[in-house]
């Protein structure tokens, strides 16, 4: 059970990231989100979403989905490394818990205005 992301539907608005941050901090903040919009290639318009799950990173890029096992010898791909530049690295963030304590379910799914995120 997890979430799935259609990166081509995503408009990079970051509502998912803020909704996740609210779930973590009970306030509006981005530092603890386990779903992050990567947006460092601004001049290329290359953007998508990364999710930290229990055992893997889910990297939703325009050309398709990539799943990277955590702890494998292979390094995370560059988009994952650069996702949040100077912010808290993805690997140090808590894994997605599907907002198990929220009545409405995963907040990123609920707050995505273009339905790019859905339960898997």
């Amino acid at each position: 059970m997890g979430i799935k992301i259609d990166a081509l539907k995503c408009t990079g608005c970051m509502a998912c990231e803020m909704a996740c941050g609210y779930h973590r901090d009970d306030g509006f903040a981005l530092l603890a989100s386990c779903i992050v919009a990567y947006r460092t290639r601004e001049k290329k318009d290359y953007f998508g979403v990364i999710v930290k799950e229990e055992d893997e990173l889910l990297i939703a890029r325009p050309e398709g989905l990539e799943v990277k096992k955590l702890g494998a010898s292979e390094e995370p791909s560059e988009p994952a490394q650069k996702a949040d530049a100077s912010a808290k690295p993805m690997l140090l963030r808590e894994a997605c818990d599907m907002c198990e304590d929220m009545e409405v379910g995963p907040m990123c799914v609920k707050f995505c205005p273009v339905n790019a995120i859905s339960p898997a």
């Binding site: 608005c13 325009p62 205005p113 273009v114």
Partner: peptide, 13 residues
């Protein structure tokens, strides 16, 4: 046109 994008938390791109 390549892609459309939205400002922060804005439902229309």
């Amino acid at each position: 046109v390549h892609r459309h994008s939205a400002c922060y938390n804005t439902p229309y791109a």
